[in-house]
């Protein structure tokens, strides 16, 4: 008897779980030949709210983990992705990417995760500073995560763009909600399964599918979201995001790069979503003219 293949239901990823959209809506994703290949959740405002709530709840624990531990968990994500290469290559092909290109995309994505895993416990040493001041203070500046980040994943790649904008955000101790590519959403949800099996605490990354246009306003005006990373290319949406961001002075970071290129990853992408904290600590300037020592 012929076996009936079990097709995967692509759902959302919120707070470490895979719920369907609260709205019950979906859209059909078609391949290049016009054949439907999956039903994708069409997220609503309430899904954004739920994801933001989950991210806020997870922030305390994630930001207080040691940088070394965060690095280990990110490395674990790369390990898990490596083990599921074939699945991602097949999904990319189903979405119209050629075989060679698909293989290359998955490889770069894995390497990119390892790259940011390595930076986790090093970026603060490299970028922090001890500042010379004209009083007897030890004055130093260190980076701290900004909070909950809303991410609009790049539209023209399914996996690599998402990984490239997401990793620097969580490497720095932020939590986030990600709006996946509208036309190529498959890898985003499968990547959520990778995150789910990687010791990443639930809620650190939340992934929604749906349309940028519908959700941009809710996401960018949300008072509990502290920064927006915009990887899309729609100047109208970007303009409204920037206007909405004024309400609680969110950072808006625009990321537009060719993600296949090696120079599309760098240390400074981590501090895009960091706050610089400067501390003045009273200290005796030993040997100085006014010192008693």
């Amino acid at each position: 008897m012929a076996r009936i293949e079990i097709l995967k239901t692509y759902k959302l990823f919120i707070g470490g779980q895979f719920p369907r959209t609260e709205s019950g809506r979906f859209y059909a994703l078609k391949n290049t030949k016009g054949t439907p290949i999956a039903n994708i959740c069409l997220s609503s405002r309430k899904d954004v709210r739920n994801a933001a709530q989950a991210a806020r709840k997870a922030f305390g624990g994630w930001s207080e983990k040691t940088a070394f531990n965060r690095g280990q968990i990110l490395y674990r994500i790369a390990e898990m992705l490596e083990g599921r290469r074939d699945q991602f290559i097949a999904e990319l092909q189903a979405q119209g990417v050629g075989k060679a290109k698909a293989e290359k995309e998955v490889e770069i994505a894995i390497d990119r995760i390892v790259y940011y895993a390595g930076w986790c416990d090093k970026y603060n040493q490299v970028l922090s500073a001890v500042n010379p001041v004209s009083s007897s203070h030890f004055n130093f500046s260190v980076y701290e995560p900004t909070g909950v980040v809303g991410i609009f994943a790049p539209q023209n790649t399914s996996l690599l763009g998402l990984v490239s904008v997401l990793m620097p955000v969580i490497a720095g101790g932020n939590t986030c909600l990600v709006l996946a590519s509208e036309n190529m959403p498959l890898c985003a949800i499968t990547f959520a399964e990778v995150l789910h099996s990687s010791d990443l605490p639930g809620g650190v990354v939340n992934i929604l599918t749906g349309t940028n246009k519908e959700l941009a306003d809710t996401l960018s005006s949300h008072m509990d979201i502290n920064a927006i990373v915009y990887g899309g290319e729609d100047s109208e949406i970007l303009k409204s995001i920037q206007e909405n961001a004024v309400s609680n002075i969110k950072r808006v970071i625009v990321q537009k790069k060719d993600w296949v290129k090696p120079d599309s990853q760098d240390l400074y992408m981590i501090i895009d979503t960091q706050e610089l904290k400067t501390t003045w600590h009273p200290i005796e300037n030993i040997g100085g003219a006014t010192s008693s020592y």
Binding site: V48, R49, T218, S221, H222, M223, D224, S247, N248
Partner: peptide, 9 residues
């Protein structure tokens, strides 16, 4: 207002 709020404020 239609805008989701934050306990920060």
């Amino acid at each position: 207002t239609g805008i989701y709020q934050s306990s920060d404020y």
